[in-house]
Amino acid sequence: MTTPSFGTLSFGIVGLAALVLVAIGPPGPRPVRTDPVAASPPPGVSAGGFTISSTSVDLPIDDGVYPDGPHADVINANCTSCHSASMALTQPRLSAEQWMAIVKKMRETYKAPVVETDVPAIAAYLTAMSGRLGRGSLDDASGHTSSQPAGKDVTG
């Protein structure tokens, strides 16, 4: 599988240049023509009355971290590049065994570059964070008292 061509990048650069020019403003009191090159449509293909235009977007960057707690430094060092911290923080209350199974799956199946000696600390952080659900320290948690089986299937 290949990565897409970077042809559309040029349009991004042209657009960016236009943005910078506008931000700087006109060089003097004289009015400046504003028919920016960026007004030309992005390249695309058309046939049969349908057009597919090249597309370039910016995705939001997540700079969120795991809240303070024992081993927060370990989980923040290991578990923020592949996915947002919110993925773990929106999980329901899970048992220590479930969290351990999840951390091991991330490392062994999904090849997260986590050294094995960090695994217990990450699982312990998640278990402690998760345990706060149902004690009123997170939003509307009412808590489960039933034992929960380890989720072994991949979720999607």
Binding site: T3, P4, S5, F6, G7, T8, L9, G12, P43, G44, V45, I52, S53, S54, T55, S56, V57, D58, L59, S81, C82, H83
Partner: peptide
Amino acid sequence: AEIPTSIDATT
């Protein structure tokens, strides 16, 4: 997480 954000329809 590696999602292409720029796709050239012509190529």
